Amino acid sequence: MSVRDDDLVPVERALASHPEFSDAPTITLKAAEFYRFAVDLLSERSATVAGLADAIRDETGEIPVAVTEDPLVRVVLDEAVSRLEQGFLDESAWTEVVTLLRLVAEALDAHGASAAPTGAGISKGRTVRVAPGRDAWLCGTGAGSTAALDRTFLGTFERDFLRGVPGDLLEPTDEHARRLDEGFAALNALLPELGASVGAHYVGVGMVDVRTEGETFLAGNVGRIPAVVFFSPNRTARPWRLAETALHEGLHLKLFDIQRSASLFTAPERLADGPKIKVPWLKWASMVAPNAWALDRALGAFHVYAHLVLFRAALRTRLTPDLRERFGDPEPSDPPSLYRFGTERARYLGEEILARGGDELTAHGREFVSWLLATVDAVKEPTGV
């Protein structure tokens, strides 16, 4: 028995369009509204911030989406709102907000009112088509740039992405751009609804050479540079390899945006000291790769594995001759075993999160996990493969 393509359509649609847990237009709109609210909140408390915000607003009086999506803007506003919630925003935090808004206004003056403030400078106008109608800026090394926003982005990359690990942000070549376009095109051809839903959460992409000892760096993103994913050349070498990686990393971006407008955990700040989930497919533990995960890390992995169940089923059933001719054949996988692939990992993590989450999960969070488990169970596993 093989998985029929018709069996995958409702699962893909569910994973791409649930109004609270996956619908990209709704989720990204809520995220944009949060950051607009943050600017308004800060403007009420500072005439300087209010004046700078007015200089950024468009003809309708709104903060443009390109600004609310900007990774540096998001981080500074997140931190400012968090401090306000704790009751006090000190002088250094106000200075950071004012400085960033001034730099954003300068970038919009230099590159156009609809430009991505950080992206326009660091990418020099280069983009990657991550989904139909959706481009992400392709960041470069900033060589020769003296723009303060560019230097801030590059400093954040060094400090918060590399974190002391040897590596470099690469100046993208035409070949890099072509491979990125091709890999995202493969994802969107295989899973058109899910690809578009995940692509909506990409703002920027970059190419990196990260030299880790004992393991190969594939791709990654970091909370201090939200909505930007950095890929190694290894992951762009073949279209299906990049398609899976682009889906994986894009799901992390999506989960960040989901949590921006929906509370999944009752007290996220306590999770590091809360329940841990043993990871049976990680036999050894280290400081870098523990084999017992906090609930938020387990949820991030579970969210990805639940979608990879669909991706791998689609690779088995949706590869038409046209797709094979255009993108080649997927690379062979390892022989199946318990916890080797997404299905068993997803079921294990989802069930463990529900069992151990207790009071750490909100009712909304439990519903989210249960919904993902249901989508995993809805993908019928083939026999004889």
Rank of each mutant, 00 (worst) to 15 (best):
V76K: 05
R45P: 03
I56C: 03
P71A: 10
P64W: 01
V75W: 10
T60N: 12
P64I: 00
L52R: 05
G61A: 03
V49M: 08
A55C: 07
E69H: 12
E69F: 11
L77W: 00
V67K: 02
D70Y: 01
S46P: 01
A66W: 03
L72F: 01
E44L: 12
L72G: 08
D58T: 02
G51V: 07
T60G: 09
A66V: 12
V65T: 13
T68E: 02
D54C: 06
L77G: 01
T48W: 06
I63C: 04
E59R: 15
V76A: 07
L72A: 09
R57M: 05
G51P: 07
P64F: 00
S46G: 02
E59H: 15
A66E: 11
E62Q: 14
E62D: 14
L52N: 01
P71R: 02
P71E: 04
D54V: 05
E62A: 14
T48C: 10
P71L: 07
V76Q: 03
R45V: 02
L72V: 07
L52P: 00
S46K: 12
L72W: 00
V67E: 01
E59N: 13
T60L: 11
L77C: 03
V75T: 13
V73T: 10
R74M: 09
G61K: 09
A50C: 08
A53Y: 01
E59C: 09
V65P: 09
I63L: 11
A55G: 14
D58N: 13
V76D: 02
R74C: 02
L52K: 03
V49P: 00
D70C: 12
I63G: 05
E44R: 13
D70Q: 04
S46C: 04
V65E: 14
A53L: 06
G51M: 10
R74L: 04
D58L: 00
R57A: 03
D54Q: 15
V75S: 08
A66S: 15
P71W: 00
V73Y: 09
A66Q: 11
E44S: 12
E69T: 11
D58E: 06
A47S: 15
E44W: 12
I56A: 05
G51C: 09
V67C: 04
D54F: 10
S46A: 07
V75A: 07
P71I: 04
A55E: 14
L52S: 02
V67P: 06
A53H: 02
G61N: 07
L72C: 06
E69N: 13
A53F: 01
V75R: 15
D58P: 04
D54E: 15
